[in-house]
């Protein structure tokens, strides 16, 4: 059986190696590299455009009100993909809690915090605990910055949420144990659900026109709807229409989801039910 699959693998590899010679060279993609050369100020400008990506580069800024074209692709043009992606994360958090709550039982659900004489948690050393305390605010602030400035600078909901979740990872490895797992889980789970609900409700709010329509962009400028000038600009926080809302919703969801995964996994690996010490798996 292995030989057969290896043979199939070699056939596929042969196809691929002959196929890559016919792909376009890296740095020579389809489309017009001088997309911006004759840009007029019209809202939807279709001259000089041959592919989807040229359209995004040329019109994305005006149509979505976001300086970061990747964010406008993620949350506006392909927002439905992002909904599916957020659903995947929700799905995996749900399934992991479903699977792991069958292992974590009884006393493992509640754990008292072991502290040394100075009030720091035992387990890891003082160095790690103090380092965690010092780093946690910086990490959280940086994550929140990434989430909120998703439409202006590199970043967005997923990246920011993941950065914030590394804060949870720090807390976990430096043995700041969760006192009551059920309560923590319910809190995180509520906020995760809330983020997703905000996402989908924002999608439905544009339903008068179409699902996930960016109805706030290029409005009066008071609330997230500032009309930004064409081309390079310093970036305005109150632009972008529904993109910052969606980005924040996704950020909350990702932060809470990954935190649940981390906490549950660390607790399951240390579960008393199976073996002593939690390092075998």
């Amino acid at each position: 059986m292995k030989l057969v699959s290896l043979l199939a693998m070699f056939i596929i590899a042969g196809f691929m190696f002959t196929g890559i010679g016919k792909l376009h060279l890296p740095g020579d993609p389809a489309g017009n590299s001088n997309v911006f050369s004759q840009r007029s100020s019209e809202k939807t400008d279709t001259a000089n455009i041959s592919t989807m990506d040229d359209y995004y580069l040329r019109n994305g800024q005006m149509e979505t009100g976001s300086n970061n074209i990747v964010t406008s692709v993620v949350f506006d043009y392909r927002g439905f993909d992002t909904l599916g992606e957020a659903a995947v994360l929700f799905l995996v958090v749900t399934s992991i809690s479903m699977l792991l709550f069958s292992i974590i039982k009884g006393k493992d659900l509640e754990e008292t915090v072991l502290t040394d004489s100075d009030g720091f948690p035992a387990g890891m050393t003082r160095i790690v605990s103090i380092g965690t305390v010092l780093m946690l605010p910086i990490i959280m602030a940086f994550g929140a910055y990434l989430v909120i400035h998703g439409h202006l600078s590199p970043g967005g909901g997923f990246q920011g949420g993941a950065v914030m979740a590394t804060g949870t990872a720090l807390l976990v490895i430096s043995s700041f144990v969760v006192r009551n797992l059920q309560k923590t889980y319910k809190l995180f789970s509520f906020f995760e659900s809330l983020g997703l609900t905000v996402f989908i409700v924002t999608g439905f709010a544009g339903m008068g026109i179409s699902f996930l329509h960016n109805f706030l962009a290029n409005n009066d400028g008071s609330f997230l709807g500032k009309v930004i000038p064409l081309g390079t600009n310093p970036g305005f926080l109150n632009s972008g229409g529904i993109l910052p809302i969606l980005s924040t919703a996704v950020g909350i969801e990702v932060f809470c989801g990954i935190s649940i995964i981390l906490v549950l996994l660390s607790r399951a690996l240390n579960a008393r039910g199976s073996q002593k010490g939690g390092h075998k798996c």
Partner: peptide
Amino acid sequence: YYTMGASDP
């Protein structure tokens, strides 16, 4: 057809 987010879906 249903185009997500377009002005005329």
